[in-house]
Amino acid sequence: MWTTAEFVLFQKQLFNILVPIIIIIGNFGSILNVIVFSISKKLRSSPCSLYLIFASIGFALYLNIVALLRLLQIGFNIDPSSKWSWVCKIRFYAVGFLLMLPRSYMLLAAIDRYLMSISSQHRFLSHRIALKMILLTCLFWMIICVHNIIYYDIQISLNGTNPICSNPSGTYSTFLSFYSILINGLSMPLLMTIFTLLTLRNLKHYRNQIHNNSLIIILQRRKKQEWSILRMILVQLIVNVILSLPITIYLCYNGLTQYIQKSSIRIFIENYIYNMLTILQYLNAAASFYVYSLTSHIFRKELYYLVAYYSNKLKQYVINYSTALFTQMTLTFTT
Rank of each mutant, 00 (worst) to 15 (best):
T3F: 02
F10T: 07
F15S: 07
L32H: 07
V34H: 01
I35S: 01
R44V: 07
S45W: 10
L52Q: 00
F59I: 06
L63V: 12
I74T: 07
W84M: 13
W84R: 06
C88Q: 07
F92L: 11
G96R: 00
P102C: 10
A109T: 03
L131A: 11
L136M: 11
W141I: 07
M142G: 10
I149E: 08
I150Q: 03
Q155W: 04
S157K: 02
S157Y: 01
S166F: 11
S169C: 04
Y172P: 02
T174I: 13
L176E: 13
S177T: 11
S187I: 09
M188Q: 12
L190C: 15
L191S: 09
T196H: 05
I210K: 07
L219S: 12
L219F: 15
K224I: 14
S228K: 01
L230W: 03
L234M: 14
V241A: 06
V241F: 06
Y250E: 12
C252L: 14
R266C: 04
I267V: 15
I267E: 11
I267Q: 12
F268C: 05
F268K: 04
F268V: 08
I273A: 07
I273G: 04
N275S: 15
L280E: 02
L294K: 10
S296D: 11
I298V: 08
I298G: 00
R300A: 06
L303H: 06
S311C: 06
K313I: 15
